[in-house]
Design a binder for these strands. Structure first.
Lengths: 203, 203
DNA sequence: GTCTATACAGCGATAGAC
DNA sequence: GTCTATCGCTGTATAGAC
C-alpha cells in the first residue's frame, strides 16, 4: 500500500519516471478504463494516455491487453478479513453490515469489482474470475456470517451476494433511480431486512 | 406473433425469400447474437451468416448496427398484462409469482431482456433503454402488486426488480452455481420470502 | 431488393532505433 | 526502458452492378 520499503537498500529517493510508479499509474488508469467501458471498449491507447505513458510501454510491461486486465484485477484485499468483520457484529445487525460490505465491493469508479462485473458481461475470462470469486471466496469464507449454515447455507449466501450485485448493477451500470442517487448507508438500511432474512431465516 | 394477416389480400402463401421472413430471420439472429456476446462483440457479418442473408442486406433493412439493435429490442409484450397477472394472485403468494415473472424476463437464450442487460454493461444507449424500462414500466405499472405502495413503494419495487436482475446476471451471465443449474421454479421458491418482504413488508 | 467489392477507421501487437 | 512507425486484422458502412 505505502511506497514499499526497498528490498536491499534503494539508492536514493525515487523520482517521477520510476518503473514502479509507471506500473502503478498504468494499473490505476486500466482499472478506471475497464470499469467505465468494459474490456472491449477500453483501449490500450486511451489507458496509456490517461497514465501519461506510451502505448508501447504498456505492452512492454504487461505483454498484452489480457495481461494488463488480469494484473489490474488481482485482489488486493483479503476476503477472510472482509467477512470476519461482518461476523464480528451481533447477529441481529449483520444484515446491515453485510449489505454495506458487499455494496462497497462494487462501489467506486475505479473499483476492481465493478470493472470485473462490467467486463464479465462480454468476456468469458472475466466472467470466470468473478464466478470463482463468488463461488469460492464468498461461499467458503462467507458461511461464518450465517446463523444456520447447514440449512441451504450455500444457496442463501449466493442469493445474498447476487441480490447486492444486482443493486450494484442497477446503481452503477444502469444508473437506475432512486438507487443511483442514494448513498450507500441509506441503501444498506433499506436492504438490510431482506439480507437479514438470508443470514437468519425465521423458519 | 402469428404469421400476420395480409393487410389487403396477400397474393399467395409466402415463400422463403419473402421480405418479412428475411427481416424476422435477421431479428432473431440479432437477438441471439446480442444476448450471447453483447453489443460490441456481436458482428453484422455473424448475424447475417446466422440468418442466412448477406451482411449488406442487414444494413439495407436496418440502416446501421444500432438500428438493428433497437429493432431487435422493441418490447413485444405488454408490461401491463405482465404485472396484472401477478396482482391477480393472492397477496401471500405474490412473492413467488413476482419472482417467477421477473426471472422469466431475462431467461432464454434469445431473451431481449438478457440481451439488453448484457449490452448495457458497455453501451450507454442499451443501459438507458433498460433503465427507462425499470424506472417507468416496472415502477408505474408494478406498484399495483404492492400491499402498501404509499410506504417507500418506489424503492421497494426497485429493490425487488434489481434483486431478481442480479440473480439473472449471476445465473446467465456469470454461470454461478448453484443458480445456473437450478430450474426457475425451484429458484423462485427460494427467493419468494425475500421478494414477499418487498411486496408486503411486515412493519 | 439483393449481391460483390471496397473504402475507411480503429484496434492490438511488433520491430527496431535510441 | 521508452519511443516512432507500421503491420495485419476486423469491423462498420457505402457504391454500384444486377
Amino acid at each position: 500500500m505505502s511506497p514499499r520499503p526497498a528490498p536491499e537498500a534503494r539508492r536514493a529517493g525515487r523520482r517521477p519516471g520510476d518503473p514502479d510508479d509507471t506500473r502503478r499509474a498504468i494499473l490505476d488508469a486500466a482499472r478506471r478504463a475497464f470499469a467505465a467501458s468494459g474490456f472491449d471498449r477500453a483501449t490500450i491507447r486511451a489507458i496509456a494516455a490517461d497514465a501519461g505513458v506510451d502505448p508501447a510501454s504498456v505492452m512492454h510491461h504487461f505483454g498484452n491487453k489480457r495481461g494488463l486486465f488480469v494484473a489490474a484485477h488481482e485482489l488486493p484485499d483479503d476476503p477472510v478479513a472482509l467477512f470476519s468483520q461482518i461476523a464480528a457484529v451481533p447477529l441481529s445487525e449483520r444484515g446491515h453490515a453485510a449489505a454495506l460490505t458487499y455494496l462497497r465491493l462494487f462501489a467506486g469508479e475505479s473499483s476492481a469489482g465493478l470493472s470485473l462485473l462490467r467486463a464479465a458481461a462480454s468476456d468469458e475470462h472475466a466472467a470466470a474470475t468473478l464466478r470463482e470469486f463468488i463461488e469460492h471466496a464468498i461461499l467458503t469464507v462467507g458461511v461464518k456470517i450465517l446463523a444456520r449454515p447447514e440449512q441451504d447455507g450455500e444457496l442463501r449466501l449466493t442469493l445474498l451476494a447476487t441480490h447486492l450485485m444486482g443493486i450494484a448493477v442497477a446503481r452503477q451500470v444502469l444508473g437506475v433511480r432512486p438507487l443511483a442517487t442514494c448513498d450507500l448507508e441509506t441503501l444498506a438500511r433499506a436492504v438490510a431486512p431482506a439480507v437479514q432474512h438470508y443470514i437468519d431465516p425465521p423458519g
